[in-house]
Write a protein that binds this DNA or RNA. Structure first.
Lengths: 112, 112
DNA sequence: ATACTATATCACGATATAGTAATATAACTC
DNA sequence: GAGTTATATTACTATATCGTGATATAGTAT
């Protein structure tokens, strides 16, 4: 089957940007946080409970996610409410998940 | 705007699998290799030239890509021809690229 | 068998990143 | 202001992974 889309020409720098984005998604802790934010904004303490991560760790990873523009924050009093600022990120994760699901389902049929 | 898809429930193990897949894509060297394979199979020496990576390094990264089932190999005499075994991987990269492209294009308009 | 080529693997040093514990900051309450 | 709570930041250790150089393996040719 031939390809539908033409190969894209990407510079070294472009590749590094792409790699960095993927790297942000390559950490279970950050994926956990993104999933916890899927249903709407959450403040840090809630995220600590939802994810089981420690406070400092949550803060750090949220910082990384924010640095890449995947989440943003709204401060209100003592609380910081985080939310997903780039819904396409969730799509990417969804795609990867359904990919894996299909893959394993397919493989499992080899044993029936 | 409300979400179209329901949040997915993923176990700790599932998250780790997803993270691992993303991690494979989080390396410029491996992205370079995948891009070089986009137009069809290539043998290792060709990949060395196309990517500018060293031989050992190419072999190592191809091994990692193969370990995750993203590429596969066909041996023919002295040569090893690698090819993309999971076209969806390319889709994922495409998605990330076009995402970044749009994002930067949009940002650039803020300065006109 | 020897020599040669293509690829894979190994051992290593250097770097990056995760997690933790401790501390700093900032907003609120009294 | 003193005390308290929520979050951010810092310093540190441990681990993982990259790239490299050297070596091993396997196919080919003479």
């Amino acid at each position: 089957m031939p390809r539908q889309t033409k190969p894209r020409k990407i510079s070294e720098q472009g590749l590094q940007l792409v790699a960095r984005r993927f790297k942000v998604l390559s950490e279970p802790a950050r994926l956990k946080l993104l999933m916890a934010l899927e249903e709407g904004e959450r403040h840090v303490t809630a995220l600590i409970e939802l994810t089981g991560l420690t406070q400092g760790n949550v803060s750090k990873h949220l910082g990384i996610l924010m640095g890449e523009g995947m989440v943003d924050r709204r401060k209100q009093g003592l609380n910081a409410f985080y939310f997903i600022s780039d819904p396409q990120i969730i799509e990417l994760c969804e795609l990867m998940c359904s990919k894996l699901e299909k893959e394993f389902t397919r493989k499992s049929t080899h044993f029936r």
